[in-house]
Write a protein that binds this DNA or RNA. Structure first.
Lengths: 90, 90
DNA sequence: CTTTTTTATTATTGTATATGAATATTTAAA
DNA sequence: TTTAAATATTCATATACAATAATAAAAAAG
């Protein structure tokens, strides 16, 4: 994939209301799948699917913590900066 | 649309390789549809459709110049900053 | 006016995406 | 080692998106 395609894919991954909201939530710290599920009020499978897309695109990563799998932003500052720019004055 | 949805839609509009490339091209100044078409080597209808999506999402605007319709970035600095952040170290 | 140039729209078709239900997998706890 | 809890995957279906061809519309030039 070219750099343009990689960037487009990254933007596309963020360009879904549920996934964007997940990213927002993760700014405040890591969350396990169940927390994402209940915070956003979506189905378990759906949360897992969206997290998978974010992971594939390098937006999040995860670690297992016992029973749970905790997802976190790989580059939280980057996400914060993006949102700052996107929503400044909006 | 909520702020989250507006932002997601904006990201989604940019999250297509052709549209992202159009945005890149427009950083260097406005282009008419035919120029976009030939620069990116895509069909006329396709260029027009992608430009329409960018316009609907507030990424570009256009002015008629005689025969032509010139498209330009509404917030070129914003696009530049986004790309800077997205592609820093990539 | 008619013709040409440029851009937009429509219709079609194929592909991709999103969601939910059901099931499988993984890990920890009993 | 079974059972329960958490997460992932698969499958089915509905919807959205992308690209093309064909056509329409708008403006300028002749």
């Amino acid at each position: 994939m070219s750099r343009n395609e990689v960037t487009a894919s990254y933007l596309k991954a963020l360009g879904h209301p549920v996934r964007l909201m997940i990213a927002r939530e993760l700014i405040n710290g890591q969350k396990c799948v169940g927390e994402v599920e209940s915070t956003l009020n979506i189905r378990q499978a759906n949360a897992s699917q969206h997290l998978s897309i974010l992971k594939i695109n390098g937006i999040v990563d995860c670690i297992r913590k016992g029973n749970l799998k905790c997802y976190f932003l790989k580059e939280p500052k980057k996400i914060e900066q993006l949102l700052d720019i996107l929503e400044r004055y909006q």
